[in-house]
Amino acid sequence: MFINRGILQIENQLVKVTQFNYNTIFDTVEAYPSVGAADTLMLTIFNNTSTNQSIFFEHTNSAKEVNPKSFAKVAVWKMPGKRTVPFYSANKTQKYLGLSSAIIFNNSNEKAFFWNLREYDESINQQYFEGANLNFSNYIPDVFTINSKVHTIYKANQMAMVLGNVGDSIYIDILNSGLMFHSVHFHGYHVKIIESNKSNEMIGWDKDSFPIDPGELISVLLVPHQPGLYPVHDHNLKAVTIGGNYPGGMIAMLKIEP
C-alpha cells in the first residue's frame, strides 16, 4: 500500500489530497484491504510523500512511523467480535487530507461493501499545499465524497454501489473519515447496526437513519426484503450537494435484484 499525494477532480473542483493507494502512482481509488476472517494481513506501507507519516492502527492501539520515501511493515489481525480495523494518520491534518481507511475482515462467501465518507473544504486543502497552517475555524466543506468519488446529477457513484439480491446478507462497513458529523439514511430498507469502533448504544437496533461521528466506523447488515434501486444518503442535506448543487456528494446506491 502506498501513501500518495495527488489531486481529486470532483466535477469542476480540484481537491489536493493525500491518500492510501494500491499503486505507487497516485490514483483516485483508495485502498481498503479486504482479508479473510481467519487471516493475518502482512501490510507494507510505502510513503511516497515528503512528510513523516505516523499511521495509527486500532487493533494494536499504536502508531507505525513511516519516513519519507521509505516503508514500514505491520501485521494486522482480526480483533475479536470486530469486522474491521480502522487505520489513519495520527496527525489531524494528514487525516483530514485523506489518510484514513480500514481493513475489512470477512468470510469469502459474504457480500461486503465499504463506504469511506469524507468531506473537504477545497480552499483549506489548497492552503495546506501552499504551505499554510490549516485553520478550520472557517470550515465550510463543499465536496462530500464516498470512496473519493461523488454522485452527480449525471452519474451515480460507481464506487459506492451496493449490488445484491433479495434475501442476501449484505454487510456495509461505513467509516466517517471527515471532521463533520453525518446522518446516514437508507431508502427502501432498515438495516441492523452490528458493530462500531466507538461506544455506540445502537448496536442491535434496526434503523433507517443513524448518526456516524467523526472517526467512527459503523458496520450494518442489510437483508433486502424487496428488489429495487434505492439511494442511501447523508440526511444532513448540505452533504448531498457538489459545489453547492443538488444532487451530489454523499449519495450511494443500492441495486437489489429479485
Binding site: H185, H187, G188, Y189, H190, D208, H225, Q226, G228, P247
Partner: peptide, 18 residues
C-alpha cells in the same frame, strides 16, 4: 413525496431519478 422510513417499493419511493 418520499415516505421516509416506510420502506416502500421503488415506484413509490419519491426519488426523481429512480
Amino acid at each position: 413525496i418520499h415516505w421516509h422510513g416506510l420502506d416502500v417499493d421503488q415506484a413509490n419511493d419519491g426519488v426523481p431519478h429512480t
